[in-house]
């Protein structure tokens, strides 16, 4: 039990560290396109890691009630993981394409921050 707890905490901590990296990138990088690099990758992995940790917690530690709707929670979390993996890059790609089509200039080395 302690081992599983430790694994769950490692998953959650890794996820939150990656999410913080993504937010620091969002605040610190110089322009729109490079900011999306940070959020598109770090957020996806961070959120998937946190939800995977909670999935492990539900499967091995949490003692669910008798109702079926509680026992089906791991399935919902699995759907969430698959959906985040599919939707997060797609949303990033959609915003980026819209920006590129409307003519937002990419930042080049040596330019001022935008």
């Amino acid at each position: 039990m302690v081992l599983i707890d430790a694994i769950v905490i490692i998953f959650l901590a890794a996820g939150i560290i990656f999410m913080f990296t993504g937010v620091i990138g969002l605040l610190r990088l110089p322009d729109f396109y490079t900011r999306l690099h940070a959020t598109g990758k770090c957020d996806t992995l961070g959120e998937v890691l946190i939800i995977a940790g909670l999935l492990l917690y539900h499967l091995f530690v949490y003692s669910p009630g008798a109702e079926l709707s509680v026992k089906l929670v791991p399935v919902k979390l699995l759907f969430l993981i698959i959906f985040i993996f599919l939707a997060n890059p797609t949303a990033t790609h959609a915003i980026m394409k819209a920006a590129y089509k409307t003519g937002v200039k990419p930042w080049k080395k040596g330019d001022a921050r935008m």
Partner: peptide, 21 residues
């Protein structure tokens, strides 16, 4: 994906930000 995250973390947290888009 894991490699990509460490790559982004390195580029973001490095004081000089080694990026050249």
């Amino acid at each position: 994906i894991v490699l990509a995250n460490f790559d982004v973390a390195y580029r973001v947290l490095h004081p000089k930000m080694p990026i050249d888009p």
